[in-house]
Amino acid sequence: MGSFSIWHWLIVLVIVVLVFGTKKLKNVGTDLGAAVKGFKDGMRDGTTSADAAQQQVTNATRNDANTVDVDAKTKS
């Protein structure tokens, strides 16, 4: 009485598909997979991912045509 049979799970699956639609469920699955992959990559790389992210930001600002490179000087 406490466990669900395969028919219960099929009915729940049909109701979920009818409510959310297959496209929305596919997007949720894709996003979840990307999040898990990103988490695994972050755990494997450790602290080097933060350094790589900083390097990517630095390279992006160097290549941006709207960025102005200025050297700050102290007043004396």
Rank of each mutant, 00 (worst) to 15 (best):
Phe39Tyr: 10
Asp31Ala: 10
Val70Phe: 13
Lys26Gln: 02
Thr58Val: 14
Ala50Cys: 07
Ile11Tyr: 06
Ala60Leu: 05
Val17Phe: 06
Val16Lys: 09
Leu25Met: 12
Val36Asp: 02
Leu18Ser: 11
Asp71Lys: 15
Gly2Asp: 08
Asn63Arg: 09
Thr67Gly: 03
Gln56Thr: 09
Ser76Asn: 03
Arg44Gly: 04
Ser3Gly: 15
Gly42Lys: 01
Ser76Gln: 02
Lys26His: 04
Phe4Tyr: 10
Asp51Ser: 14
Gln55Asn: 14
His8Arg: 12
Phe39Asn: 07
Ala65Ile: 07
Ser3Trp: 09
Gly46Ile: 03
Gly29Cys: 04
Ala35Tyr: 05
Gly29His: 03
Ser49Phe: 11
Gly29Glu: 00
Asn63Ala: 14
Leu13Lys: 11
Met1Gln: 15
Thr74Glu: 00
Phe4Ile: 12
Leu32Gly: 08
Gly2Phe: 12
Ile6Phe: 08
Val57Ile: 14
Ala35His: 10
Ala53Leu: 13
Lys37Ser: 15
Met1Thr: 15
Asn66Pro: 00
Asp45Cys: 05
Arg62Tyr: 03
Ile6Gln: 11
Trp9Asn: 05
Val12Ile: 15
Arg44Phe: 05
Leu13Arg: 12
Ala34Gly: 13
Gly38His: 09
Gly38Cys: 02
Lys23Arg: 12
Gln54His: 13
Gly33Gln: 02
Asn27Thr: 13
Gln56Glu: 03
Asp64Arg: 08
Gln56Phe: 09
Val19Gln: 02
Val12Thr: 14
Asp31His: 07
Ser5Glu: 02
Phe4Trp: 10
Gln56His: 07
Lys75Arg: 12
Gly21Leu: 00
Val17Arg: 07
Lys40Trp: 07
Trp9Asp: 07
Ala65Trp: 00
Val57Arg: 06
Lys73Leu: 06
Lys73Arg: 13
Thr67Gln: 03
Thr30Leu: 11
Leu32Met: 09
Gly29Ile: 03
Gly2Trp: 06
Asn66Glu: 02
Lys26Thr: 11
Val28Gln: 05
Ala72Glu: 03
Gly38Ala: 10
Asp45Met: 07
Phe20Met: 06
Phe4Ala: 13
Asp71Trp: 08
Phe39Met: 06
Thr61Val: 15
Gln55Trp: 04
Asn63Gln: 08
